[in-house]
Amino acid sequence: MKQTLKLVGSILLLKLSLIAPHSQALFFDYTETKHPIVLVPGIFGFDSIGGVFDYYHDVIYQLERSGAEVYMASSVTAVNSGEVHGLELSNWIQANIPPGEKVNLFAHSQGVQAARVAASLIPDRIASITSITGVNKGGIGGDFASTFIQEGNLIDQFGTAMGNFIDWLSGNEVGSADGYAGFYALTPEGNAELNVNHGWGVDQVNACGTGPEDVDVYGHNVKTFSWVGTSKITNNFDPSDVLFGLTGLLFPGEHDGLVPRCSQLMGNVIYDDMKMNHMDAANQALGFTSIWLDPIYLYRGHANRLKRRGL
């Protein structure tokens, strides 16, 4: 009888695991953090295009289904400097999150610059910042990129036009995009300048060092975390892998196709060597992500980590 009950229990657990994909635990409050989670996009970012293509594909649903309160930061210009994005993000938080409520910022790529600037502007509203393959010290090919990033040239004009186009598609205000400012923000020089005043959790002395988890931002404690990706080609069905395969050939070394491993380090490094590329980390494109590691598992697990820390 006891063996029969064990068998029935095992079958029920198997069925539950099949109907609840991506779940690390079968609890309705697994991702129920104390403070809301705000997802912040990176360069050429958006919230949603046409209500079909979300920047963080399926992430909001997968977090909300077990208790999290999740927002996608909108009205953040597709391409501009970290300072401008940070001001836009802080304004969005104050306009959309109830007064006095703190938020946990999950920031992808250049979005982590906006998150750190927002922490400087409204430190009393930020509980934590998580850098998801974030640009904290510059993108790949820093010196090479700096040579081609000049104000007013074709690259600047292309970036501005593309930014305005993405803003138009996503329903944001058109006309605020600045290609030069956005691209310069990705260079080592641009990062160094921003980090002078907004380098929370970033080791500005050691090239491959990281800062503390707990950071004092003008008298307010803000916890900082980071996830680091180091793979380029992760899924043959993902068209973005073609780009990252090319950047991997042009720029050898440890990076996720766009950001060097050392640049991604910030605060408490939760995942030091994820087998995913830069777009995989935001569950793009449309979920055609790394065959080695499911991003949804990471997002849900990190929400539970924040919950256990009282955040």
Rank of each mutant, 00 (worst) to 15 (best):
H85E: 08
G86Y: 12
G86A: 08
G86Q: 09
G86P: 10
G86R: 09
L87A: 10
L87V: 11
L87W: 00
L87R: 11
E88S: 08
E88A: 11
E88Y: 02
L89A: 03
L89M: 02
L89T: 06
L89I: 11
S90V: 04
S90M: 06
S90A: 15
S90Q: 05
N91L: 11
N91W: 02
W92M: 05
I93R: 01
I93H: 06
I93L: 07
I93P: 05
Q94A: 07
A95W: 00
A95D: 10
N96K: 09
N96H: 15
P98N: 09
P99Y: 15
P99N: 14
P99I: 14
G100Y: 12
G100Q: 04
E101C: 05
E101H: 12
K102D: 12
K102Y: 09
V103Y: 15
V103M: 15
N104G: 09
N104V: 15
L105P: 13
L105C: 07
F106K: 09
F106N: 05
F106I: 02
A107P: 06
A107T: 06
H108T: 00
H108F: 10
H108K: 02
S109I: 07
S109C: 15
S109T: 03
S109E: 02
Q110M: 15
Q110H: 07
Q110G: 05
G111D: 08
V112M: 06
V112Y: 02
Q113N: 05
Q113P: 04
A114K: 00
A115S: 15
A115R: 01
R116E: 01
V117L: 02
V117H: 01
V117A: 07
A118D: 04
A118W: 12
A118G: 04
A118E: 04
A119C: 09
S120H: 10
L121C: 03
I122E: 11
P123N: 10
P123Y: 01
D124Y: 12
R125Y: 01
I126C: 04
I126Y: 12
I126D: 03
I126G: 06
A127E: 12
A127Q: 11
S128Q: 01
I129H: 05
I129T: 05
I129V: 13
I129A: 03
I129R: 05
T130Y: 05
S131R: 08
I132K: 04
I132D: 02
T133Q: 06
G134H: 10
G134Q: 09
G134A: 07
V135S: 13
N136L: 05
N136C: 04
N136S: 04
N136M: 04
K137T: 08
G138R: 03
G139R: 00
G139M: 09
G139I: 06
G139T: 15
G141D: 15
G141W: 15
G141F: 14
G141A: 13
G141K: 11
G142H: 10
G142P: 11
D143A: 15
D143H: 11
D143T: 14
F144T: 00
F144Q: 01
F144D: 11
A145F: 03
S146F: 01
T147F: 13
T147L: 14
I149G: 06
Q150G: 08
E151G: 06
E151Q: 14
E151L: 07
E151H: 00
L154Y: 10
L154I: 15
I155E: 12
D156L: 01
D156T: 09
D156W: 03
D156E: 08
D156A: 00
Q157T: 11
F158R: 06
